Computed example of a mutant assay.
Amino acid sequence: MSLLYPRLLPGESERLFASLHGRQPEELARFADVTSDRAIFAATGGTRVTRDELRLLAADLEKFAVANGFPRSLTTAGRNDFDRIAARHLHERSGMLPGEASQRQVWAFLALVLIPHVCAWRFPMREGVYLADRFKGTDLTRHTLARLWTRAHVLYDPSLPDPYELLAGLGEADLDHVMARRRSVAATPALVRAIVRAHTEDSRTNDGIPARAVHRDTLRRLLRLTAFLNLDWMSEQELLELVREQRRESRRLLAETGVNVADL
């Protein structure tokens, strides 16, 4: 049975998000809490998460962030490593099922009440302002934490020695390009897994063509195919062969035209 998490009321989400602007993460850490008077639980569908469980979740996520250089040494590798370990932890240990994880106000609570400072470390202010999508849950594919749970859920493969192995198959930017297409490519989880598998096995090809260029051109080809192919009826192996075929065609075209990765 799913654990139920607090759901921050929409008005409170707006108020707390507005209060973040101009404040450094160190200040936000002082306001972090495991409860809010303006949060509710779903009436049915699971067991309510306890305050101790929320404290442990917050402590673990902060520990992962610090271990990867936050907040002082922010590198691309550190951010990617944090995303991967946090994604696995959220999916493996949070006790959420998809129904609970689909609730925007759950993620608003986690980002605005439980660990606002960690989210601010991961996505710092720009000109004194934080980005709403990273905190409020208006778009779960861009929320600091929700996007990680979703990636782990989609890429989870129990047939592998490590079921979360595919999380390391693509970097942040390239995986974001896939998951952001939630009405087309990302609507078929098996296709997402096939894309990551094919990229992992094909990125070792030493022909001078950047793996990112092949990946992005392949993604465009797959987007066109989703307009008239029902991919939900294809097996995982059939989808993998489809992606491999599109990657071969992309690689051939890029080799002939000499298209630079910066043009993609």
Rank of each mutant, 00 (worst) to 15 (best):
His143Glu: 07
Asp232Ser: 03
Ala186Leu: 09
Leu175Phe: 10
Phe31Gly: 01
Phe31Met: 09
Leu20Arg: 03
Ala255Lys: 07
Phe31Ala: 13
Lys136Asp: 05
Asn80Ser: 08
Val243Pro: 01
Leu56Gln: 13
Ala32Thr: 11
Asn260Lys: 05
Gly45Asn: 08
Arg51Cys: 14
Ala194Leu: 12
Val154Gly: 00
Ser250Gln: 03
Met1Ile: 01
Pro189Leu: 15
Leu131Phe: 04
Pro158Val: 12
Arg216Ile: 11
Glu92Asp: 02
Ala152Cys: 11
Leu61Glu: 02
Arg23Ser: 14
Ala65Gln: 00
His153Thr: 07
Arg7Lys: 14
Trp233Gly: 11
His143Ala: 06
Thr141Ile: 09
Leu239Val: 08
Arg88Ile: 04
Asp207Glu: 09
Gln246Tyr: 03
Gly78Ala: 06
Tyr5Cys: 06
Asn206Leu: 13
Val66Ala: 06
Leu155Lys: 00
Leu160His: 01
Leu9Thr: 04
Glu165Trp: 03
Leu16Arg: 15
Leu253Ala: 15
Asp207Tyr: 10
Val192Asn: 00
Thr138Phe: 03
Thr35Asp: 00
His153Asn: 12
Ala18Ile: 04
Arg247Phe: 14
Asp232Leu: 07
Arg48Lys: 15
Asp174Arg: 06
Thr35His: 07
Arg216Cys: 15
Tyr5Met: 06
Leu229Trp: 05
Lys136His: 06
Arg212Ile: 09
Arg30Ile: 03
Arg248Val: 01
Pro6Ser: 06
Phe123Trp: 04
Leu112Tyr: 01
Ala120Val: 12
Leu131Ser: 14
Ser13Leu: 11
Gly128Trp: 01
His117Thr: 13
Glu14Thr: 12
Ile195Tyr: 05
Ala86Cys: 00
Glu245His: 14
Ser13Gly: 15
Leu240Tyr: 14
Glu236Trp: 02
Ile209Cys: 11
Pro189Asp: 13
Asn68Gly: 02
Glu249Asn: 13
Leu223His: 09
Val129Trp: 11
Val243Trp: 10
Leu8His: 02
Tyr130Asp: 00
Arg252Glu: 15
Thr218Asn: 02
Glu26Phe: 06
Pro210Ser: 14
Met234Ala: 08
Leu191Trp: 15
Phe82Gln: 03
Glu201Gln: 07
Leu167Phe: 11
Ala77Arg: 07
Thr144Ala: 15
Leu90Phe: 02
Asn206Glu: 07
Gly11Cys: 12
Phe109Met: 04
Arg248Ser: 08
Leu229Gly: 01
Arg193Asp: 04
Leu166Tyr: 00
Trp233Met: 12
Thr76His: 11
Ile209Ala: 07
Ala32Gln: 13
Phe64Lys: 08
Ala42Tyr: 01
Asp52Leu: 11
Thr47Phe: 10
